[in-house]
């Protein structure tokens, strides 16, 4: 048996052993605290890696690609192909943005091998978020608005004693397009939690989860103009979020234009 196969088997064994062995602490208490625990774990910690990622490190052969075709809204596709997307600030104006700076940045978990991303829709716009940086999905509930916060700050939503800072995604992503008609038409149903933070993006629809290869994304590492944009999913022509950069912007109270 080759070394890589032995290593793969060992990782699998450990993983399965963990899952299938009753812990001293009751599993049910783990279940109750799943949401809380994810918030306290360090970003991209080894333990957070899925089995698939672990297997990739031991040269597991690549398998399934896109599990299901993800529909892209016509408007977005048209904007992209016409090159008229700059007014939304979603797409890069130059493909050469700070490529060299990427070398100095810490490598993100999803920048190696295949990775899973979830696509969601807001106001006809499809946005992708790497699954490894997705903290969870909640149904939209009542939010309490706070005084003195930016327009895009929808308010605070309580979820099992946890306070979620809810972002009106359409207002954050395309403030200049958000007229009253668009605002009225929005039917937010979900909150997409950003990594371990207390920030959540509102979404109208969850589209799909898809396995992406590195080649399927046009990477825009360390874009100073759009730090929140990790890259562009080529086939779907939609933005892939850089979640940690986005959290930083939200913490600063900055909108998409970093104002």
């Amino acid at each position: 048996m080759s070394k890589s196969l032995t290593a793969s088997k060992k990782i699998m064994k450990n993983y399965l052993s963990e899952l299938l062995t009753e812990p001293e602490v009751d599993v049910e208490s783990v279940q109750q605290s799943v949401v809380k625990q994810t918030t306290s774990r360090p970003l991209a910690h080894k333990e957070n890696q899925s089995l698939e990622n672990l297997l990739k490190t031991v040269n597991e052969p690549k398998e399934a690609k896109v599990a299901k075709e993800v529909p892209v809204t016509k408007d977005v596709a048209k904007e992209v192909t016409n090159g008229n997307s700059s007014d939304t600030g979603l797409l890069p104006t130059s493909s050469e943005e700070s490529l060299t700076a990427a070398i100095t940045l810490p490598q993100k978990g999803y920048r190696q091998g295949d990775f899973q991303a979830m696509f969601f829709e807001v106001a006809g716009l499809t946005i992708a978020v790497p699954l490894i940086e997705l903290g969870g999905i909640h149904k939209v509930n009542k939010t309490s608005s706070l005084m003195g916060k930016p327009d895009w700050f929808k308010g605070v939503m309580l979820y099992r004693d946890e306070k979620i800072n809810v972002v009106d995604t359409a207002l954050w992503v395309m403030p200049e397009k958000c007229d009253q008609a668009l605002k009225d038409s929005l039917n937010y149903q979900y909150i997409i939690m950003l990594n371990d933070s207390s920030w959540g993006l509102m979404a109208e629809h969850l589209v799909d989860t898809v396995v992406l290869s590195q080649d399927e994304v046009k990477w825009l590492d360390s874009s100073e103009k759009r730090p929140w944009l990790a890259g562009l999913v080529k086939e779907k022509m939609c933005a892939l979020l850089d979640v940690s950069a986005l959290i930083e912007l939200l913490n600063k109270g900055s909108d998409i234009n970093q104002k």
Binding site: P23, V27, V30, I137
Partner: peptide, 21 residues
């Protein structure tokens, strides 16, 4: 099922006993 299930591997990681739920 719901799409939220896709996040379980991340949130549960390899917590002991979670394979028997």
């Amino acid at each position: 099922a719901t799409m939220g299930l896709a996040t379980l591997d991340r949130s549960l990681g390899n917590k002991g006993g979670m394979g028997l739920v």
